[in-house]
Each structure stands twice: as structure tokens, then as C-alpha cells.
């Protein structure tokens, strides 16, 4: 009996370990290529770690490429999108969760429908809309487009968090003398922090890694975001793998920092949302 349970525990841990190794291997490879000097890249292509590591690619990327600009642009776009979407989704998710109003069913259906389009189909129309407004080749334009795409899903996400908070709480607050909005701000919002963190995280990463629209709406290096910037390492005749990977490693940092910051709420939040379905 005991031996069996020990065996099961070990097998369980090993399975988790195997999964983690599988999931993290690409990241490891990214790092490995980033520190491999160019002359060893092809000769030692399949070794797990190069015989000689160097930071020359990082140095190049940070000091001699336009990368810091891409980086800043990405931060601005992703951060703004995350904040804008989360604010909008909190308000609309609350409305969907708490209010009954005419046309609610159709509104929800419409929002679901927007999630069904392949985005490629929308590139041309969106370009046509934004260009006379002067919003192509601008970070603001990107923020608007990303926000529009992310609001529906984020709204559903936030709605499920609001659904998980008993209605009694805001009713108690209203009887205590709060208006519905004050009850929302002082009682419901603080309790939804996990949901807000999850939404922020989700939207931030979605915007951070978005390539298609950034590529199509932005021309030139000044306004390019980091995924587009990565493409600049691909030239007509060669690919600068080392620099590209170094840039990739750097690009992971803000995402990691961001999740480190919100992970305390996130674990709580994702499970809360999950139970609610």
C-alpha cells in the first residue's frame, strides 16, 4: 500500500517535471542561441550549451540597433491597451452581470460573433478606416485596434468574475447608504482585483505579441513594435539568429516582470473564474 503511494507520487512528480521541461525547452533554446557567438552557431548547432558563451548579441542589440525604440513602443502600446481594455471590460462586464436591459441577448451574441472572424480578413478594411483618420503608422491607432479586438473576450472574463461575487454584498452596501456606483467602486471592485489582474495580464500579453496588425499598420522603425522589430533581423540574404534571439530574450523580461507582479492575484483569479465557468 505505502510502496504504491510512494510510487504514484514519484510518477506524478516526474510527469510534471517532464511537462515543465517540454514547455520550457523553447525558452531555453532561445537563451542558448542568444549567448552563442556567431562563429559557433552553425558548427555547434545541436549542442545543448555552446563551448564558449558571450553577451555580444545583447550588447549589439541594446547599443547598435533600433531595438530600444521598438521596446518602448511595445511597452506603450501593450500597457495602454491593457489599461484601456480592463477599464472598459470592468464596466461592461459588471453591466452584463448585474443589469437586465433590452437587447442584452443580442449584444452578447454580437460580441461573440466578433470573436469568430479570422483577423486577416479585417486588415484591409481597418487600414482603410484608419488611414484617413491619420491613425496608421501611429501607436494610438494600434492601441485602438487592439482594444477593440480584446474588449469582448475581456468583458466575458470580467463578467464571470462579477458573477462570482454575491449580489447581497452590493445590496448591503446600498442599504448602508451607497449608490450603485459607489457600491461598485468600494465593495465590488476591490473584490475583483484577481479578475482585474487576470484581464490585465491576458490583454497585455496579447498586445505584446501581436504581429499582424502592427506589421500592416506601421511602416518605418519609429513606431514599430517589438514583434515587427524582430523581423528586421531577417534580411534578404541572411538571418541574424543570435541578435534575434537576444532581442527575444529581452522581450520576455517585461512580460515576466508583469506576471510576477500580478501572479499573487492571478492564481486566485484564474481558479475563481474557472469554478464559475
Amino acid at each position: 500500500m505505502r510502496a504504491k503511494s510512494v510510487f504514484l507520487t514519484v510518477a506524478h512528480r516526474l510527469a510534471i517535471l517532464a511537462y515543465i521541461a517540454f514547455a520550457l525547452f523553447p525558452l531555453f533554446w532561445l537563451l542558448k542561441v542568444a549567448v552563442t557567438p556567431n562563429d559557433l552557431l552553425y558548427s555547434e548547432g545541436i549542442r545543448l550549451w555552446p563551448s564558449r558563451a558571450s553577451l555580444e548579441h545583447f550588447d549589439f542589440v541594446l547599443r547598435h540597433s533600433a531595438f530600444p525604440v521598438f521596446f518602448r513602443n511595445s511597452l506603450i502600446v501593450s500597457g495602454s491597451t491593457a489599461v484601456v481594455v480592463t477599464i472598459l471590460a470592468s464596466l461592461s462586464g459588471y453591466a452584463l452581470s448585474r443589469f437586465r436591459f433590452r437587447g442584452k441577448y443580442w449584444l452578447v451574441t454580437l460580441m461573440l460573433l466578433t470573436q469568430m472572424f479570422p483577423l486577416v480578413m479585417l486588415v484591409a478594411p481597418i487600414f482603410k478606416i484608419l488611414s484617413p483618420l491619420g491613425l496608421t503608422n501611429s501607436l494610438t491607432g494600434l492601441v485602438i485596434v487592439y482594444s477593440a479586438f480584446n474588449v469582448p473576450f475581456a468583458t466575458f472574463l470580467m463578467q464571470s468574475f462579477f458573477d462570482g461575487i454575491p449580489k447581497d454584498l452590493e445590496e448591503a452596501a446600498m442599504i448602508d447608504g451607497a449608490t450603485q456606483f459607489v457600491a461598485f467602486r468600494q465593495i465590488i471592485l476591490p473584490l475583483t482585483l484577481p479578475g482585474i489582474a487576470a484581464t490585465l495580464g491576458f490583454v497585455f500579453t496579447a498586445a505584446w505579441s501581436e504581429l499582424l496588425f502592427s506589421l500592416m499598420l506601421i511602416s518605418g522603425n519609429d513606431q514599430a513594435t517589438f514583434p515587427v522589430g524582430l523581423l528586421s533581423f531577417v534580411s534578404k540574404f541572411s538571418v541574424d539568429f543570435g541578435q534575434m534571439m537576444a532581442a527575444g530574450v529581452l522581450a520576455l523580461i517585461p512580460a515576466c516582470l508583469f506576471f510576477l507582479l500580478i501572479q499573487r492575484y492571478l492564481v486566485q483569479g484564474l481558479t475563481a473564474g474557472a469554478v464559475k465557468g
Binding site: 447581497d168 454584498l169 445590496e171 446600498m174 442599504i175 447608504g177 451607497a178 465593495i187
Partner: peptide, 20 residues
Amino acid sequence: LAPKDRDIAMVFQSYALYPH
């Protein structure tokens, strides 16, 4: 009249205490 303007107090079955 909105609940806040009725000046009544209520005890809920679930207590509805503010968790935070």
C-alpha cells in the same frame, strides 16, 4: 426611493459582510 434614501438597516441571511 433608492435604498440609501430609505434609512433602513437590513441583516441578510448570508450576512453579506464585506470580505475586504
